[in-house]
Amino acid sequence: SIVTKIISIVQERQNMDDGAPVKTRDIADAAGLSIYQVRLYLEQLHDVGVLEKVNAGKGVPGLWRLL
């Protein structure tokens, strides 16, 4: 499923980069989806406690990390 793919992308990127959070844009590119589509999935995963959003604010790139 797309959700499983997104989780594995975040996991893979974090492992490659010493646990650093992953940008929404990088996840979207790797999943082959638009940034808006991916954001909806990321928000859902956040709501159920799978991911945390590391930063927030208007015009700030979203950074995500697995919990």
Rank of each mutant, 00 (worst) to 15 (best):
S1Y: 10
S1W: 13
S1A: 12
S1M: 11
S1R: 11
I2S: 03
I2R: 04
I2E: 04
I2H: 05
I2C: 08
V3N: 04
V3R: 11
V3C: 12
V3S: 07
V3A: 09
V3H: 11
T4A: 14
T4S: 14
T4Y: 13
K5Q: 09
K5S: 05
K5L: 12
K5N: 08
K5P: 00
I6R: 00
I6Q: 00
I6V: 04
I6D: 00
I6K: 00
I7F: 05
I7S: 01
I7R: 03
I7P: 01
I7W: 04
I7Y: 06
S8W: 12
S8R: 13
S8D: 07
S8F: 13
S8E: 10
S8H: 10
I9R: 01
I9P: 00
I9L: 05
I9E: 01
I9S: 03
V10P: 00
V10F: 15
V10E: 00
V10D: 00
V10W: 02
V10C: 05
V10T: 02
V10M: 15
V10K: 01
Q11R: 14
Q11Y: 12
Q11T: 09
Q11N: 09
Q11K: 14
E12F: 12
E12H: 12
E12R: 09
R13P: 02
R13E: 04
R13G: 03
R13V: 04
Q14H: 09
Q14G: 05
Q14D: 03
N15M: 13
N15Q: 12
N15H: 10
N15E: 11
N15S: 10
M16L: 12
M16A: 12
M16C: 08
M16R: 13
D17M: 15
D17H: 15
D17I: 11
D17T: 15
D17Q: 15
D17L: 15
D18L: 10
D18A: 10
D18S: 14
D18F: 12
G19N: 09
G19F: 06
A20C: 07
A20F: 07
A20N: 11
A20R: 13
A20D: 09
A20P: 04
A20Y: 10
P21K: 04
P21D: 03
V22D: 01
V22C: 05
V22K: 01
V22Y: 02
K23W: 05
K23P: 14
K23R: 13
T24G: 04
T24K: 01
T24L: 03
T24V: 04
R25I: 10
R25Q: 15
R25F: 06
R25M: 10
R25S: 12
R25G: 10
R25D: 10
D26H: 06
D26L: 04
D26C: 03
D26S: 04
D26R: 02
I27V: 08
I27K: 00
I27N: 01
A28R: 02
A28F: 02
A28T: 00
A28D: 03
A28M: 03
A28P: 00
D29P: 01
D29F: 09
D29M: 13
D29Q: 12
A30Y: 04
A30C: 05
A30M: 07
A30W: 04
A30P: 01
A30L: 07
A30E: 07
A30N: 05
A30Q: 10
A30T: 07
A31L: 15
A31S: 09
A31R: 01
G32V: 02
G32D: 15
G32S: 06
G32W: 03
G32N: 08
G32A: 08
L33Y: 04
L33I: 10
L33D: 01
L33V: 06
L33W: 03
L33P: 00
L33Q: 03
L33T: 03
S34Y: 04
S34G: 07
S34W: 03
S34E: 07
S34H: 07
I35A: 05
I35R: 04
I35H: 06
I35T: 07
I35F: 09
Y36F: 11
Y36M: 11
Y36L: 10
Y36K: 14
Y36H: 13
Y36I: 11
Q37W: 09
Q37V: 14
Q37G: 03
Q37F: 10
Q37L: 13
Q37R: 10
Q37C: 10
V38M: 06
V38D: 00
V38H: 00
V38P: 00
R39V: 14
R39M: 15
R39W: 10
L40E: 09
L40D: 06
L40K: 14
L40Y: 14
L40W: 14
Y41E: 02
Y41R: 02
Y41W: 09
Y41V: 12
Y41D: 00
Y41K: 02
Y41Q: 02
L42H: 00
L42W: 03
L42N: 00
E43N: 10
E43D: 09
E43V: 05
E43Y: 08
Q44T: 09
Q44S: 08
Q44G: 07
L45Q: 00
L45D: 01
L45N: 01
L45R: 00
L45F: 01
L45V: 02
H46Y: 11
H46F: 10
H46D: 03
D47A: 15
D47P: 01
D47K: 15
D47C: 13
D47F: 11
V48N: 12
V48K: 13
V48R: 13
V48C: 14
V48W: 14
G49P: 05
G49M: 03
G49F: 03
G49T: 02
G49E: 02
G49I: 04
G49D: 02
V50A: 04
V50W: 05
V50D: 06
V50T: 05
V50K: 04
L51R: 00
L51Y: 02
L51G: 01
L51C: 02
L51I: 09
L51T: 01
L51K: 03
L51Q: 02
E52N: 03
E52H: 05
E52V: 08
E52W: 03
E52C: 06
E52A: 06
K53S: 04
K53R: 11
K53E: 06
K53C: 06
V54S: 03
V54D: 02
V54H: 03
V54P: 01
V54C: 06
N55V: 08
N55G: 10
N55Y: 12
A56N: 12
A56D: 12
A56H: 11
A56Q: 12
G57E: 09
G57A: 07
G57Q: 07
K58G: 10
K58I: 11
K58P: 13
K58V: 11
K58T: 12
G59S: 08
G59A: 06
G59P: 05
V60R: 14
V60N: 13
V60C: 11
V60H: 14
P61Q: 14
P61V: 10
P61C: 12
G62S: 14
G62L: 15
L63R: 11
L63D: 06
W64N: 01
W64H: 01
W64A: 00
W64E: 00
R65W: 11
L66D: 03
L66V: 11
L66A: 05
L66T: 07
L66C: 05
L66Y: 11
L66N: 02
L66W: 08
L66F: 09
L66S: 03
L67Q: 10
L67V: 14
L67H: 12
L67T: 15
